[in-house]
Design a protein around this nucleic acid. Sequence first.
RNA 1: UGGGGCAUCGUAUAACGGCAGUACAGCGGACUCUGGAUCCGCUAGUCUAGGUUCGAAUCCUAGUGCCCCAGCCA
Length: 427
Amino acid sequence: MKLGEDSNGPPESEDFIRAGIRSDLESGMQKPLTRFPPEPNGYLHIGHAKSICLNFGVAEEFGGKCNLRFDDTNPSKEDVRYEEAIKEDVKWLGFDWGGKVYYASDYFGRLYEYALRLVSEGKAYVDDLSTEQIREYRGTLSEPGRESPSRARSVEENMRLLRAMRAGKFDESQYVLRAKIDMASGNMNMRDPVMYRIMKRTHPRTGNSWPIYPMYDWAHGQSDSIEGVTHSLCTLEFEDHRPLYDWFITQLGIYHSRQIEFARLNLSYTILSKRSLMKLVSKGFVSGWDDPRMPTVSGLRRRGYTPESIRNFCRKIGVTKQDSIIDMGFLEHSVREDLNRKAQRVMAVLDPLKVVIVNYPEDQEEEIEAVNNPEDSSMGKRKVPFSRELFIERDDFMENPPKKFHRLSPGSLVRLRYAYIVRCKGF
RNA sequence: UGGGGCAUCGUAUAACGGCAGUACAGCGGACUCUGGAUCCGCUAGUCUAGGUUCGAAUCCUAGUGCCCCAGCCA
């Protein structure tokens, strides 16, 4: 193995995230803590592998830890059966989350207390606008939004309404809790984002104890903070959520995790959106999430990809903020490189062409030694029978060969693998 | 002048202000022992225009192009 090819090691050149963490460490930060936070609403794909390798890799390299956390804040879209599949895939890729699995739902109580606090400080309010009205009031990309009439509600009334929401007194969509920020902000995420929606759904972990569920923006940063995540790595599309991420943490005065964004993986000729992959599965175009044609981790596994090859692929594509599309050939090169080193070789003839060695004794048969892997003698040898009559692949013979044809043709000399040199004297 | 982000060979990714490098792909050779293997070699790039500087991919100014954002999804 050449230097820099260790699939577990850091990349040859340091990316901006590792450089940032190194600098944080140098200026006094203790061990870094990252997290891989999948929503259990589908199987992991090669794009997740990039995130997994980054989060777990960085933690390992800097002597820190990486939490596996299920972002289970929306019971209408999630399913526990995905959790086992996700854990299996992370483990198969070669990463260890240290036994304890974290769940955003474990923080529902804490989150609710935080919300009460923001409401009591006049920084959040209960809104009775309909979904459509909220959209209208939000304005557009180029026009500011308008403030909801509910914004004027008193703190006392907001407290009462939030408690009633939590107590399950209302129907879905009747109310939402919103942060009171800035309806004129150029950043849509700051136009009074919804923190809680009413959802009468049974949650796999909290059962029916919560009729309200936190939105991503309200749950994620606080979950990071509660766990003490130092570096919260996510993809580029969350870049303009960062001001909100920071706003909540600052208002609450809790531990300040830092969100850092990197470009998500795009693969040529490959769809990597859970929504689309889900459609392929649910409409029966493939046999399941682990169909070998799928770009999922489990699909790649069934396809014959090794964890090392995927890890190495992730190392080599790097981590930047540039939108990019990696050539599928690069992924394929990674398995070939790994398998070439590890796979046992055997010979098989798919389309046989009989060859008679005319000067080889009729009744003789000998055993020839063949190496199992030309690049690794420790993989041993095997015996291959050799006799007067044998078969070669039809493609390995041509009656009228082009110039660079190095296989068998009339009059040509060719070495039979592990055995003798033969000349074609007739056919 | 809505906000946020990104520009380096075909692709991806490096380069304290100091020789633009590496990998994949492509092309050409080598190897009578599978090849989609391996080895050797070649091709090919700093978005544009100014400026600062002995010297700019890097700093400054002005442009241009591309991506993301208007879920009670994550």
